[in-house]
Every structure is written in C-alpha cells, then in structure tokens.
Amino acid sequence: MTARSNDHPLKVDGLTKRYGNRTVIDNLTFTVEPGKVTGFLGPNGSGKSTTMKVLLDLASADHGTTTIGGRRYRDLPNPASTVGVVLEPNAFHPGRTGRDHLCIIAQATGQPRRRVDESLSIAGLDPDAAKRRVGTYSLGMKQRLSLAAALLGDPPVLVLDEPANGLDPQGIRDLRDLLRARAANGDTVLVSSHLLTEVQHLVDDVIVIADGRLVTTGTIDELTGKSAHVRTPCPARLAELLLAAGATAQQTAGDRLVVTGLDLDKIGDTAHRGGLAIHELAPNAGSLEDVFLALTAQPSQKGN
C-alpha cells in the first residue's frame, strides 16, 4: 500500500461547549496528526463524543474552532469522502437491511454502488448478513456496519467513537489491523475508546480529557513513562506529600500508588524528606489503565 498525501490534521482550538449552564467542554485545544492513530480518552461524560460532534458540525461550539485540514467540516468540498465517521452505536433504522443502509449513504454522498460491497468486505460483514434487517444484528455486526459506512468514501480521515464496542476478539484484531494500515497509509485516525488495553495496542498518540478539559497529550510511551509505581507501607501519607509536591497519586491497591507528575528521583526524595519507607519505586511501564485512572481521577480521589 502506497502512502497517500494527506493534509488533513484535525485541530481543536479553544473549544468550549455549554448545554444550558453546564459546561461540557472547557477551552479544549489539541491537534491530531496524519499518519498516526490517536486515542481520545476520558471517563464517561468527559466530553469526547461532544467534541467529535462539534468537529463534524453536528453540534455548534459556544467558543473556539474545529478544523479538518484547515477547514470547517461544512466547508470541505466533499465531507463524506474526506471524513469517515462512527459516532452513535445504533444509528440505523431496525427495519432496513444493512445493505440498504449503506446504499442510502452511498447515494447521498455520490459514491458508486461498488463501494458498498467493497466496504462490507473491508469491515468484515458477511454479504448475506447485509441483506438482513439491522434489527436482527448483534452489537458487533452493527459496529461492523458502522465501520463499513465510515469507509464508503475511502476517506483520508477517520473519526471513530468507541468502534471496538461489542466486537469479538477477532473483530477487535481486524479493527486494529485496519486502523494501523490506514495510519501507515498516511491517514488521520482519531479513536475514542474506554477499552484501554486495546487502545494501548492500537494507538500512537493519546489525548486525555476529563470534565471537558485537556488533561494530557503525548505518545503512549511518554504517557506511561510519566507515571511511576510506588509501594510503601504509608500510601496515604506519601500521597499527601506527593500531592503537595505537585504530583497526582492514585492508590490502586493496598500499599501501592500510581504517581504522575514527578520523576522517580523526586518521588524518592519526597518520601525520604517525609521519613517514609519505600519498598518499591519503578517506572509504570505497561499500564495505560493505571495512568489513565490517575490522570482522570476526580479531585476528591486525588491524593487518596
């Protein structure tokens, strides 16, 4: 596969979105680069889906801008051929066949009919199953149909909200291979997911948000390298000291803490100054989940 020229970075700049008095996205800024798979992570209700909806002009921003290749979604010459989208897990009429669903989208976006079959094949949905009404589909089959719809226009940008939800292990592997191939081809891929173990194997970069605010961005290696695993007989006291030193500490089990925001030397120094014993201090490589939980912990949880 030859990498195609892709000038479609996704940019979110100072985005704020309110529903009534509730601010669901608060001055959010990040960039998603082409040629990579970027994970968009955050707890439920953190604003991931809303950010995607604003990016795709399905919802309006109260402040800030979102662009795809420097243009708003609505200003793209052929948006559906530029951006493939999986947004809602169940955006189908249950009485319509999967094939008809794709034909309707292909018709609206000016795609040739052959793309329907090609997309079904790429998404791994059996042609016979595509002739059945969507109401009879499993969640995994619906996800594959959503993915087929997103790929109809062979777009250089993919924006996928929880695309692995409901997929079986083979489906998850297929999805992973597909997205990695698209990124290797130079495509821009933004994936939100709560399946952190999957994300860890899939993405190059990570954007973490909580309460509508940006928490951190970086590569997976940077992110996991930012945290440390600490074992101490006094986890609560050490967490207080680390919190005072500007770190975030999350007690994960018994005498264990995941610490972010301080390097290993400073964690050791802080414990030493507090007169606390440390039984283990190591970079927390390999657990995106621990880092994610530490980064997105509610204020009341921080320092536990």
């Binding site: 002009d57 947004l87 169940n90 955006a91 189908f92």
Partner: peptide, 9 residues
C-alpha cells in the same frame, strides 16, 4: 433512530 447523523454528515 439517529439516522439523521448520516444525513447531515
């Protein structure tokens, strides 16, 4: 049915 999403995309 949220099919309106595909329409406005």
């Amino acid at each position: 049915h949220n099919t309106v999403i595909a329409t406005y995309l």
